[in-house]
Amino acid sequence: MSTAPVRSGTAADLGAVRDRLWQAVRTGDEYAATDVVLDAVRGGIGMESALLELIAPVQARVGTEWAAGRLTVAQEHAVTAVHERVIAALAHHPEGRGEPPWRPRITVACVDGEWHALPARLLAEVLRLRGWHVDFLGAHVPTAHLIAHLHRTGPYAVALSSSLATRLPTAHAAVTAVQAVGVPVLVGGAAFGPGGRYARALGADDWAPGAREAAALLDAGVARPDPLAAHQPVDDLPHLADQEYTMVVRTRTVLVKETLADLEDTYPPMRAYSERQREHTAEDLGHVVDHLGAALYVDDTGLFTGFIEWTAHVLAARGVAARALCPALESLRVRLGDFPRARRILGAAHDALTSRPAAPNVPGSGKSR
């Protein structure tokens, strides 16, 4: 399958090509998807724009479609796999080989536990196009393995990516460990919050909202940290001394189990749940506790409230009342009665839910439970 080349960079042109790319990846047709992108390159869009103005926004649409209940997790993974193949085809295309490496080595990796690797892959390809020598380590890189790699290769800088806020404690440990060997750390991804607020809290050397901004920061130069000035993560976040984060993380399994039991009494519809629905509910409660832990770690109520509001939106798209989350939040608040920060965060999320207007069921969306 071939498509008409893009002959200009107007929004209408790009929009049309994105639509064709979406149709191709949505059906799992990697050959059609590759043709769409390569035809756009032949039409003059440029390799970097193909990565960041075609592939990136179409990939972002995947999350939107999943949240609306129009894609399954399996379909989401299939689309991502097609995009990976398209990026590989671009990298081997004559116009995609970029400049021979004349800039220093950069290590690009996802933090331990972060499986959403495509944003990091896009950054790696942009840096290659701009002449950097890039080591792309991919998803879920344990910090110990990352540090061993740095000792072997001595890069100019490390770019760390994370999409999930629940990975912030791990990201913090990685930032601190990398700086301890004298390598500066640039971070990016949705995990680091609006405007990179958590990047600063975790002591990263810099933050970028996207690949072009990250490349510009590296072009401008990044100061190398002094290994002798290395510090512990708690130095950046003195509120961790209250041990609330530590206790919530350590008792996660118990909190989920006891909250699940409470819901059987306080949320009557749950009594009719099948075993599979109960398992899904337990998974959801695990995510709630994990995000509570992340909010405690950075001491930001908005992190947890934002997650709960997003979860409510997803539930509503599947025909489940958002206020079904309220009994779980209240149960956790009672069980964490000795933790004032946790109670404050849970209370704010509960208030945000109860002030939401009731949303009508989405026709045909089905139930998530």
Rank of each mutant, 00 (worst) to 15 (best):
A33S: 04
A12Q: 13
E53K: 09
D13N: 13
L21C: 13
A12L: 14
V36Q: 05
V36N: 00
L38C: 06
L21Q: 12
R20D: 07
E53A: 09
S8K: 07
L52N: 09
M47R: 10
G43E: 01
G9H: 13
V37R: 00
L21G: 08
G44H: 13
T27C: 12
V25P: 14
A32D: 10
A50G: 10
V58D: 09
V58W: 13
I45M: 03
M47A: 13
A16F: 11
D29Q: 06
L38H: 06
G28V: 12
V25M: 09
D35S: 14
T27P: 01
A32P: 10
V37W: 02
A24Y: 09
A24G: 07
Y31D: 08
A24F: 07
D39C: 03
R18Y: 07
E30L: 10
M47H: 11
L38P: 04
V25R: 02
A24L: 07
A56Q: 14
T10R: 15
D29W: 04
T34H: 10
A12C: 02
E30N: 05
E48W: 14
L51Q: 04
W22G: 08
R20Y: 02
L51R: 06
T27N: 06
R26C: 03
E48K: 06
V58Y: 11
G46Q: 14
G44N: 10
V25Q: 11
G28L: 15
E30D: 12
R18C: 03
T27L: 14
